[in-house]
């Protein structure tokens, strides 16, 4: 494949003998073999991905959003490509909690990455109901609270753009999550993302993931209509990466550094270099989203690339790198 790092990896394997690097991470008490996750909504429930890559090589896996009842999702078109990115308005289409437990959990249980279930809902009660059912499942390491989906009429981003609502829902679901790690996924569509991160952390979040997509629009100028049936969608991909890196760094400095809550950084990651930017900015782990659509094996190259970066820079432990921005 054109994107593998054959020549370089050969050189490193033959010239870095004797050096070792630890890229395992303790993420809010969950031991990860490496700091790379797949992002919610970009790899389904892992079964589809398994045809193209070894899921067990990932540090963590985050499921597509689960809601109490199944959701059909939005009308089509649901996606449109943009310069160095794409908009999506899937609308939280998912099989619902019952089917997830019956059909998908048994598959996920056999996998080695830490499994986080992304949970969405229209009301606080719906979020807590889903988490209470899943809290006793040993296949799951934790939850990712989706309060940042821009593509649904109720719930989603409406919880994530008001600090009071962030605090309220976080503390409500914290109880439902029981012993599981509670990660809160933040929306970038706010004036100050640190205010939202602070609200989540103070209300009991064990980890923060950022960023979700930006609300955006593409117009078909011949029809003078938005391309997406939902009119707007969430912008993801390399186009948003520099903003995401900035926001991770801001939240790290202003909120999480002092209290030790880990950040999962995401937004436009395609390469190991991208991932390392997020880690230097303050992320303890990273997630790859849109890029899975293009290179389903991309995460594996990123994990290998992170290792090589550490070797090249004499970093014995990836944890040294988190928040090391000078």
């Amino acid at each position: 494949m054109g994107r593998s790092l054959t020549a370089e990896s050969w050189f490193l394997r033959n010239n870095m003998m004797g050096k070792s690097v630890d890229i395992s991470v303790d993420f809010a008490g969950v031991k990860l073999a490496n700091p790379v996750f797949t992002a919610s909504g970009t790899c389904g429930y892992a079964d589809e991905l398994a045809d193209f890559m070894t899921v067990n090589k990932l540090g963590g896996f985050i499921t597509k959003s689960i809601t109490a009842a199944p959701r059909k999702g939005n009308a089509v078109p649901r996606i449109v490509e943009t310069d160095s990115g794409m908009l999506n308005a899937i609308g939280l289409a998912n099989i619902g909690l019952d089917k997830f437990i019956k059909e998908k959990l048994p598959i996920l249980r056999k996998m080695s990455p830490a499994i986080f279930v992304n949970v969405a809902g229209q009301t606080i009660e719906e979020y807590t109901a889903v988490m209470e059912r899943l809290a006793a499942e040993d296949a799951i390491a934790g939850f990712e609270l989706n309060i940042s989906c821009p593509n649904v009429k109720k719930g989603g981003i409406s919880f994530g753009t008001d600090a009071g609502a962030v605090a309220e829902i976080t503390s409500a679901v914290k109880k439902a999550a029981g012993e599981k790690v509670l990660m809160v996924k933040l929306s970038p569509c706010v004036t100050d993302i640190s205010v939202m991160a602070r609200a989540a952390v103070d209300a009991g979040a064990d980890a923060i993931s950022l960023i979700n997509t930006f609300t955006a629009m593409v117009i078909d100028i011949e029809r003078r209509k938005p391309v997406l049936a939902n009119r707007t969608g969430g912008l993801s991909g390399p186009a948003i990466k520099p903003i995401a890196v900035y926001m991770v760094n801001k939240v790290y400095n202003e909120v999480t550094k002092s209290c030790g809550v880990p950040i999962l950084g995401l937004g436009g990651i395609r390469t190991a270099s991208d991932a390392i930017e997020f880690i230097i900015a303050g992320a303890s782990a990273v997630a790859v989203g849109t890029w899975n659509f293009v290179e389903p094996q991309g995460t594996i190259n990123i994990i290998e690339g992170i290792k090589q970066y550490c070797l090249r820079n004499n970093i014995a432990d990836i944890k040294e790198l988190t928040g090391s921005l000078l």
Binding site: G41, T42, C43, G44, E48, L49, D51, F52, K64, G73, A75, V76, P77, R78, I79, V80, E81, M86, N88, I90, A93, T290, N292, F293, V294, P296
Partner: peptide, 16 residues
């Protein structure tokens, strides 16, 4: 035919 991001069942965009 539908707009699709991945073609392999990940993105859920090509709904029919």
């Amino acid at each position: 035919e539908q707009m699709m991001a991945c073609g392999i069942g990940l993105c859920q965009s090509c709904a029919v």
